[in-house]
């Protein structure tokens, strides 16, 4: 049983209050009808499943009821960070104007 820090409650709480909700930063396309079948299938079904730090969604379902994002190491199960929905992934450099390819690099501690 993990301890999870809820970025809305600002408390570290037992996993029993939370529910997992899949990979994070998979945005629903603004205009799904404009997508090709392959693009739409990729949105629906393709996930990264990394060995290492994974950006994923959790919901504090028995608490503040918010969905939020987390970085968790899939090897150790250790949480690297949690952050609010809509916030960029920590360690990504999008705000600093780095090339888009850097978005996937994460500062894992």
């Amino acid at each position: 049983m993990l301890l999870i820090h809820c970025p809305y409650c600002d408390e570290t709480l037992p996993e029993a209050e939370f529910a997992y909700a899949g990979e994070a930063h998979v945005d629903r396309p603004a205009d799904p009808m404009a997508l090709s079948d392959d693009e739409w299938a990729a949105f629906l079904f393709i996930r990264s499943n990394p060995k290492g730090v994974h950006a994923e969604r959790w919901r504090h379902v028995h608490g503040c009821a918010r969905f939020f994002n987390a970085e968790r190491d899939t090897v150790t199960d250790a949480f690297v960070s949690t952050y609010r929905a809509g916030e960029p992934r920590p360690g990504t450099k999008c705000s600093a104007g780095a090339p888009a390819g850097d978005d996937m690099k994460v500062a894992a501690e």
Binding site: A19, A21, D27, R28, R57, R59, V61, A65, R66, F67, A85, G86
Partner: peptide
């Protein structure tokens, strides 16, 4: 309810 909250909170805030 979970699915609806998901869309409201994360796709259409």
């Amino acid at each position: 309810l979970n699915m609806m909250e998901d869309y409201i909170q994360t796709e259409w805030p």
